[in-house]
């Protein structure tokens, strides 16, 4: 049973993420307490909602300066992934946590690529990493978002919706997925298992 601190940032859909972690055998503590977060072997920053509101919440909790100092594996999910980048265009210019370089931008809508990007889409694997062991180009994940991160040399897997964007990213102990692993069936379960098993 891997202990996991699931950060309760106030706007997140915590319940389904918690259940997904527990299905993979994790012992989950939903918390906003820095000491609990700091000592957990795994940390997850989930998120549903808007970037500016989420950053305000992290600021108020005293977490926005502390989270970047974590040394254990940290996984950002959906908005939680976007918060790990430098800035977000959502809600004007929102300063984020700065673990990954780049600006979160709104997906460009067209008749062929409607926004929000909502549904199952294929992953394109760009580089190998323990987090994505077992995933390949036949892996489909469930996305729900209007903003996205750019593809960069940190990108593990990209996805295509009108334009390519970053679906999974990693740098050192910080990792993130734009899609919802807790709602991506076997593909999501594999990513969570990989994250929990990481040394």
């Amino acid at each position: 049973m891997t202990p996991v601190a699931l950060i309760d940032s106030g706007v997140a859909n915590i319940g389904s993420m918690r259940a997904a972690l527990e299905r993979e055998g994790a012992h989950v503590t939903v918390t906003r307490d820095w000491n609990e977060i700091a000592r957990a072997p795994r940390v997850i920053l989930p998120g549903v909602g808007a970037a500016a509101a989420a950053m305000r919440e992290l600021d108020a909790l005293g977490l926005s300066t502390r989270l970047p100092t974590l040394k254990q594996p940290v996984l950002g999910v959906c908005l939680g992934m976007q918060l790990l980048f430098s800035t977000s265009d959502e809600g004007g210019q929102t300063r984020c946590l700065g673990l990954f370089d780049g600006t979160i931008r709104r997906l460009e809508a067209s008749a062929a690529a409607r926004v929000p990007h909502m549904g199952w889409n294929a992953l394109q694997i760009l580089r190998e990493h323990p987090l994505i062991a077992g995933l390949d180009e036949r892996s489909y994940a469930y996305f729900v978002h209007s903003f996205a991160a750019p593809v960069s040399e940190l990108t593990l897997a990209s996805c295509q919706h009108g334009q390519p964007f970053c679906a999974i990213v990693a740098r050192g102990n910080f990792m993130a997925a734009q899609f919802h692993p807790e709602r991506s069936s076997a593909v999501g379960a594999r990513l969570i298992r990989n994250f929990l098993a990481m040394s």
Binding site: A113, H117, M118, G119, N121, A122, Q124, E137, Q160, H161
Partner: peptide
């Protein structure tokens, strides 16, 4: 078959 686009949902 692999598609690189958003799939239609059932």
């Amino acid at each position: 078959m692999t598609t690189t686009q958003l799939t239609r949902r059932l």
